[in-house]
Amino acid sequence: MAEGLRELKKRRTRAHIAETATALFVARGFEQVTMAEIAAAAEVSVNTLYNYFAAKEDLVLPPDEASADRLAGIVRERAPGEPAAAAVLRRLREELRRRERALGLTEDFGRFLEMVRAAPTLTARLEDLARQMDDALAALLREETGAADDDPLPALVASQIGWLHARVLSEIGARTQAGQAPNSIAETVLALLDVIEDLLGERVLTYAPKELE
């Protein structure tokens, strides 16, 4: 029980620090806020802050949430018989219907997005994260299908899946900055996914079905 209480306190402290930092970043800009200022505002020591977040960018894009394994993880966990692209399309539709905060489907996401796009270190991290997601997915597809090292198909399929994921996020971002409400955005992007699915074609949509158990 005591260990559980300690873990709960750590989660609450981490969340409090991240929320405090986000508020400062949105109000003043990511580059203008120091780690010392965040620690003072959150009423923790600088050492404690670094124990929870190794870098300032981690406060905005936590490695456990903004993970390079996101797409590979979705594909890895798919149901037997389900192809890779179908698994990602299904998950995105589920997240859109649930209005997932991780997709930016919140009323306050617009200001947060403006802050992120104004910070070169954050935009660079997002670009690198997208590349890492594609690479991780390509490696998984190559392993699962037994493709040869010189077979370009796993990487090409992974890049198509990465593109559809990025297209969804960019559409949400653009519509958020245009002032549209989260519910309206979600419904529009759900319709967009239908168009994307048709565009991908059978070769991508049927690639790498998970082996039946």
Rank of each mutant, 00 (worst) to 15 (best):
R78E: 06
R78P: 09
P80T: 04
P83E: 13
P83W: 13
A84P: 03
A85P: 09
A85W: 10
A87G: 00
V88L: 08
L89H: 06
R90T: 09
R91G: 00
R93H: 11
R93M: 03
E94C: 05
L96W: 03
L96T: 04
R98H: 09
R99A: 08
E100Q: 11
A102C: 06
L103A: 04
G104I: 05
G104P: 06
T106E: 13
T106Y: 00
D108M: 00
D108F: 00
F112K: 12
L113C: 03
L113M: 13
M115W: 06
V116I: 15
R117L: 12
P120D: 12
T121F: 01
T123D: 10
A124Q: 15
A124M: 07
R125T: 08
R125N: 06
L126H: 02
E127V: 14
D128K: 15
D135Y: 12
D135C: 03
D135W: 12
L137M: 08
A139D: 15
L140Q: 10
E143C: 06
E144N: 09
E144K: 11
E144Q: 14
G146W: 09
A147L: 11
A147P: 10
A148K: 10
D150E: 15
P154Q: 07
A155W: 11
L156G: 01
V157Q: 09
V157G: 07
A158G: 01
A158R: 01
S159P: 00
Q160F: 11
I161Y: 07
G162I: 09
W163K: 11
H165E: 12
V168A: 14
L169Y: 06
S170T: 15
E171N: 06
I172M: 05
G173W: 00
R175H: 08
R175G: 05
T176E: 04
T176D: 00
Q177H: 05
A178C: 05
A178F: 03
A178H: 11
Q180V: 04
A181S: 11
P182E: 00
N183S: 14
A186V: 02
A186D: 02
E187D: 13
E187G: 02
T188I: 01
T188M: 01
V189A: 06
V189T: 09
A191G: 04
L193W: 05
L193M: 12
V195I: 12
V195N: 06
E197P: 07
D198F: 14
D198I: 12
D198M: 15
L199M: 14
L199R: 14
L200T: 10
V204K: 10
V204Y: 10
